[in-house]
Nucleic acid binder design. Structure first.
Length: 1042
RNA sequence: GCCUCGGUGGCGGAAUUGGUAGACGCGUUGGACUCAAAAUCCAAUGUUCGCAAGAACGUGAGAGUUCAAGUCUCUCCCGAGGCACCA
């Protein structure tokens, strides 16, 4: 008897199949198409371990099964070969990454070939091939042209060890996914792709995919859509504001007729007026006035304050502003005393040091009001109007505005007109912060507000404070001057200022220095700093609440600002406890014992030791309290909308998904096809110049400075601008590893096309991928990027459908025998080559499929390989022993047909373990019966062939066939063999199995009852009691209740 | 903390709509063959009690629904994976 020598058999058929080119993709018009794909591997230096092929074997089985069921099957393989591992390996071993990569691909391919996977190798691709990445670059350029690519200067995730920026998806718990190094925030100009524009479609289209629910769930979480509201809180100064400073001139404030009248008029308008009483006004001294001004006036003004200065007061202000750094918004000079009055010795010192250029800069708006003044000649007014660039208002017949008689209606009219409209109402602030919240229903419970330390408004408020620090010119202030100036001259009159500038600055600096891990470390106590001097106004009830900055609020989610509701949010609660902030309950459970209101939760709520967290309940299980007109109302979506509307906010949506940081400061990747031209700005590389090839260089060490190694290659970097022809430089960053894999599956359809990414007709025929198999670890990177990329290609008409992978199945890991992950580090890696050498490829394939459920992660067991091996030997022996002859017995025939049915069904459901187990049952039965017809044995070989192609092919050939099993047709099962004539009927008494009786399959209830009652065992358990009920399940059981 | 999936013999794992729990494989034990071993074949193999027939218990724990629960409901415990100060 011929022994089963796996090596001989497998080598023989591997060779024959390749010679006959059996794996070539067919495109027979009479057949349906089926595109089945594996996630292509990253060819590392270590070679394949036993875990890699698990998915490939599964798809191979399906592919063979589909071919035998008359499909045109596309089943290709390729290499995802750009990226850091190859580059790091190259650096370490001083081999160019291209050479290393090519070697690794060779090794991988050799290993895969031993498994006899039916790939069409004529369609092999590699992402590192310029003919391939030409189209990666092409797609990028299309995105750029559609405005989906932008340059960002925001701080990005930087891995100091890999020396490159990373996308959000590349992080794992705040550390680099590759090397575990804590990442830092680093400001670097980065190319970023607006994947967030596709967030909604990426989320919603999940519904039409036949993917495992848990993968969809991962993507949903990653995209992280939250429905909520954006609500604006006004910011105001918490000190008493002074709207107008009314300054008298020579001889004090009692002497001017318009003075008290003006004050009264302004106060009627609801403005606060401060009219200082300068010392010794009948014999004034500039030094004394300055002292008074510094001590009394400065502390009462803010940036919106308007100055109305009469006579000598303008003179004072002009000297003061010439000598001190103070910014004023609006100043009305009423009959200002200028040069000619120098003949009044008492006030000569007021006229010194005039610097009208500086004064002009220090005041946003200057208005000069004058009349037919007996004291001051007209040319003096004209002089100051000219020099200070002031607005001029002339009023008839008011002289020096000091007449006592009656009113000065004209000047009041002018004040009315010239006062900033903003000063009229009570609302004197133009600044506001938008917050994002999913809980607008708790708006009445907001007791403070928190901004991210990086929030733009914080910096604005900090810099606006320098306008206060007049007379104290230090370096910082001077350096801020320009910025300040521009803001002052804009329309945006700000009046809010942070008092504890140093403390806030320090906190900001500390926050920026922290790594992501430090900032989010578990159990870390919350920290923050109150912004002294400013308050936020709750738009719904006008309550003024303090503002903090704290790093528990993230700058890049929502609006970077929150309203804090400590009574109903754990984080806010924790913070409020630490900083002694009020906690105001606004949500209460509705009734008691409602769903979602456990006793425990209630307890925490009532003793105030924990925030009362409701799971964003808008099903009416909670009611609102302390919420004005909403008191006692059951919560609902409508209530959220109503409160939002009342607050002047709007309902919006926020996402956790961030835009895709697309630049890598490394060598081994696709060059980004952009050019930076001084004249034309950013220009794309012309499409006819693609591929923009990665230059072959000696040194490709990362610089670590944030610059790509490509930047050092002058002959590559320097180029001419395709638009203006001038000398320019290329973009030197490369694309991330995930670029090529985002669309590679399309290229298999048409791998050699040099005119298009993929031919439209071919794409229409083969796309989308019908079945995609790979690791679950790709759920939030590759599978999101690829869906995005594909949708973009759909939008520009390259592909005909907007989802790339119709069905997705994840493959479970194979752990090492010690239960740990297979890794060089643990020395527990098992190489498939060794297994195949010892047991054969067929056994290896069977074993991996037999281990357990396909998507479960299970430990390898070399002992376990024996089972599948014995199974193959059993079949081999059955044939060699001459069992294959004559007619198949009835029982075996039934088993055969049941098995044919089961194996077909199980392959469709990825239940290989049970398919194999069914075939083992068949083989065991054959061994017992020792007899099967040639035809039936052939059927058995056919259904086993996708699992064990070599041995089945050998026996098929020994039987005298000269065809290939992969080209044979899958056997059909015959219904008539599926049902049994006689079955075992289970007899239960009171739900317990008491006997089993053999009966005809079509037995009726009455017959079954009769037979069951004949049983002694049954009688024993009935024990003479009354039969109350009989339940009969056809073909299964009869249950007697007594 | 949140989300998802799990928890079944010594081990990997099977169990349509609730209907014989433990298929199939490994391992273990006994036997056959052999001078012996390996290989192969046969038999047994959830636990407890029992010479046996048989009985009781048994799918993480507890309760519930049902003639009947691994499967459905509730509460809890444990494990794996994912997300994580996401407002």
């Amino acid at each position: 008897m011929e022994r089963y020598e796996h090596k001989k058999v497998e080598d023989k058929w591997r060779k024959k199949w390749i010679e006959a080119n059996v794996y070539k993709t067919t495109q027979d018009p009479d057949k349906e198409k089926f595109y089945i794909l594996d996630m292509f591997p990253y060819p590392s230096g270590a070679g394949l371990h036993v875990g890699h092929p698990k998915g490939y074997i599964a798809t191979d089985i399906i592919s063979r099964y589909k071919k035998m069921n008359n499909f045109n099957v596309l089943h290709p393989m390729g290499w995802d070969a750009f990226g850091l591992p190859a580059e790091q390996h190259a650096l370490k071993n001083k081999v160019h990454p291209r050479i290393g990569t090519d070697e690794n691909i060779k090794t991988f391919k050799k290993q895969l070939e031993k498994i006899s996977l039916n790939y069409d190798w004529e369609r092999e691709i590699a992402t590192t091939d310029p003919e391939f990445y030409k189209w990666t670059q092409w797609a990028f350029i299309q995105m750029y042209k559609k405005g989906l690519v932008y340059q960002s200067n925001e701080p990005i995730n930087w891995c100091p060890s890999c020396k490159t920026g990373l996308a959000n998806e590349d992080l794992e718990n705040g550390a680099c996914e590759r090397c575990d190094t804590p990442i830092q925030k680093k400001k670097l100009p980065q190319w970023v792709i607006k994947i967030t524009d596709y967030a909604d479609r990426l989320l919603e289209d999940l519904d039409k995919l036949d993917w495992q629910e848990h993968i969809k769930e991962l993507q949903r979480n990653w995209i992280g859509r939250s429905e909520g509201a954006e609500i604006e809180f006004k910011i105001k100064s918490d000190e008493e504001k002074t709207d107008v400073v009314l300054m008298h001139g020579f001889e004090g404030r009692g002497d001017q007729g318009w003075f008290s009248e003006t004050k009264h008029f302004l106060e009627q308008k609801g403005l606060s007026v401060y009219n200082p009483d300068f010392p010794n006004s009948n014999n004034p001294s500039y030094i004394e006035w300055k002292k008074f001004f510094d001590n009394n006036v400065l502390s009462k003004i803010n940036k919106n304050t308007i100055f109305i200065a009469h006579s000598l007061a303008p003179t004072f202000l002009i000297r003061y502003l010439s000598e001190n750094d103070l910014k004023l918004n609006k100043v009305l000079f009423v009959a200002p005393a200028i040069r000619k009055n120098k003949n009044i010795p008492e006030i000569d010192d007021f006229f010194e040091n005039f610097n009208l250029q500086k004064v002009k800069k220090s005041i946003n708006q200057i208005i000069v009001i004058y009349s037919n003044d007996p004291y001051i000649p007209k040319e003096d007014f004209e002089y100051i109007i000219r020099e200070a660039d002031a607005e001029e208002i002339y009023i008839e017949n008011k002289e020096h505005f000091t007449q006592n008689e009656n009113t000065n209606p004209e000047i009041l009219d002018i004040l009315d007109e010239k006062l900033d409209s903003r000063l009229r109402g009570n609302d004197n602030s133009s600044q506001a912060v938008k917050v994002f919240t999913t809980r607008p229903d708790t708006l009445y419970g907001a007791t403070y507000m928190v901004l991210a330390p990086e929030h733009e408004l914080v910096n604005e408020m900090l810099s606006s404070c320098h306008s206060r620090e007049g007379g104290n010119p230090d370096d910082t202030i001077k350096s801020e001057d320009e910025k300040l100036d521009s803001r002052l001259r804009g329309n945006d009159a700000e009046g809010v200022c942070i008092k504890n500038v140093d403390e806030v600055r320090t906190y900001q600096k500390e926050a920026s220095k922290k790594t992501e891990i430090e900032r989010t470390a578990e159990g870390k106590e919350k920290t923050g700093v109150r912004l002294e001097g400013v308050m936020a106004v709750n738009p719904v009830n006008g309550e003024e609440i303090p503002i903090f900055i704290a790093d528990y609020v993230l700058a890049d989610y929502g609006t970077g600002a929150i309203m804090a509701v400590p009574a109903h949010d754990e984080r806010d609660f924790e913070f409020a406890q630490k900083y002694n902030l009020p906690i105001k309950m606004v949500i209460q459970p509705f009734g008691s014992g409602n769903k979602g209101t456990s006793e425990k939760e209630l307890e925490k709520y009532y003793n105030g030791s924990k925030p009362w967290i409701t799971t964003n309940d808008d099903k009416g299980n909670v009611i609102l309290i302390n919420s004005s007109e909403f008191d006692g109302v059951q919560n609902s979506k409508e209530i959220k909308e109503k409160i939002t509307k009342k607050a002047g906010g709007k309902m919006t949506t926020s996402y956790k998904l961030r835009d895709w940081v697309f630049s890598r400061q490394r060598y081994w990747g696709e060059p980004i096809p952009l050019i930076h031209c001084d004249k034309c700005g950013v220009v794309t590389v012309p499409e006819d110049e693609l591929p923009l090839e990665l230059p072959e260089v000696e040194s490709y060490e990362p610089t670590g400075t944030g610059e790509s190694p490509l930047a050092a290659i002058d002959e590559w970097v320097n180029t001419t601008c395709p638009e203006c022809g001038g000398d320019t430089k290329r973009e030197t960053n490369t694309m991330p590893q995930w670029a090529g894999s985002s669309w590679y599956y399309l290229r298999y359809i048409d791998p050699k096309n040099d005119k298009a990414l993929v031919d439209k007709d071919k794409e229409k025929y083969w796309s989308p991928v019908d079945f995609y198999v790979g690791g679950a670890e790709h759920a939030t990177r590759h599978l999101i990027y690829a869906r995005f990329w594909h949708k973009f290609l759909y939008d520009i008409g390259v592909v005909n459908y907007d989802e790339p992978f119709s069905k997705l199945q994840t493959v479970g890991l194979i752990m090492a025998e010690d239960g740990r992950k297979m890794s060089k580090r643990w020395g527990n890696v098992i190489n498939p080559d060794d297994v195949i050498e010892r047991f054969g490829s067929d056994t290896f394939r069977l074993y991996e499929m037999f281990m357990g459920p396909f998507d479960a992660s299970i430990a390898w067991s070399t002992e376990g390989l024996v089972g599948p091996r014995k199974f193959l030997e059993k079949i081999w022996k059955s044939y060699q022993s001459g069992y294959v002859s004559g007619e198949t017995s009835e029982l075996l025939k039934k088993t055969l047909h049941k098995t044919i049915k089961k194996v077909g069904e199980d392959i469709g459901e990825m239940k290989y373990n049970t398919a194999i187990s069914a075939m083992m049952v068949l083989a065991n039965q054959l061994e017992k019966k020792k007899n099967i017809s040639t035809e039936d044995f052939g059927k058995f070989l056919k259904i086993l062939s996708p699992f064990a192609p070599h041995m089945t092919q050998e026996l098929w050939s020994q039987m005298g066939n000269n065809t290939f099993l992969i080209e044979e047709t899958w056997p059909k099962y015959d219904e008539k063999y599926l049902s049994d004539d006689e079955i075992t009927l289970v007899v239960q008494v009171n739900g317990k199995v008491r006997d089993k009786i053999t009966v005809n399959a079509d037995i009726t209830e009455d017959e079954a009852k009769e037979k069951a009652l004949e049983s002694e065992k049954v009688q024993k358990h009935i024990g003479g009691k009354e039969i109350r009920k009989v339940i009969f399940v056809q073909g299964k059981l009869i249950s007697i209740v007594v």
